[in-house]
Design a protein around this nucleic acid. Structure first.
Lengths: 118, 118
DNA sequence: ACCCACTACCTTTTTATGCAAGGTACTAGG
DNA sequence: CCTAGTACCTTGCATAAAAAGGTAGTGGGT
């Protein structure tokens, strides 16, 4: 018998959703990275991602011309795709920075109103 | 000929997605509201666009037992459903507050790293 | 009495995207 | 040449926002 407890993990996952694209661009903006680097970077900041999420995302950003890559050989394993931002990617990132800023202002404003009534 | 400009609106929409549930709970936490009230509240903060998004969300939160409602007559038009948080809804909101807090810390940390390299 | 505008509720279809799981291929060491 | 490790990618599923369309109560004008 499972008590009908609200599944918070799903909500957490939904919150991360959509922010991943932004975070991925942020990570790549700092220098050339390949998929595993990005994965580690985002995991280090508690933004859980799995391979199956990241690869399609990178492909999509590539076909939107926000990213480009170059193959580089590895000392241990197959060659890697190192991604970097295009000019268009940098512009998009600036816009997403702005969006994030506005969004967090809105939410923090809602939170303040909420806290007053408690 | 359309220049291949990245569709930022879609990204914005994806960012809002998942945060809407949280914001809706935040809005209702401050007192009984009906759908149009909530819509106006969230629109004022650029967090939602249309009715068709809100009604299914309210139904879902209701069936998850986070919300309950009472019918109240209106002076001009059909009766309205006034929503309020259940005990379980208040608990969930506390957890989502925590999740939001952690998430914004993570992203702001990424942003700081990004800004250093610019 | 009737129509129309307004308000409010809800449903159906489409689309986007994260996640789980599974698949291919290169490299190096025994 | 087999195995382990690494790296790439795809397929199928579930979730949920957005777009569009539908139903119904109220009240004012004619």
């Amino acid at each position: 018998m499972e008590n009908s407890v609200f599944d918070t993990e799903n909500s957490r996952s939904q919150m991360r959703k959509g922010l991943l694209e932004y975070c991925t661009l942020l990570a790549i903006a700092r220098g050339e990275l390949y998929a595993s680097d990005i994965l580690n970077e985002l995991k280090a900041d508690n933004l859980i991602v799995v391979e199956g999420t990241l690869y399609p995302l990178l492909s999509r950003l590539k076909s939107d011309h926000l990213l480009e890559y170059t193959w580089k050989e590895s000392k241990a394993g197959p060659p890697r795709k190192y991604y970097r931002l295009t000019k268009e990617g940098k512009d998009a990132l600036e816009q997403l920075n702005q969006t994030w800023h506005e969004l967090s202002l809105s939410i923090n404003s809602l939170i303040k109103k909420y806290e007053k009534n408690n």
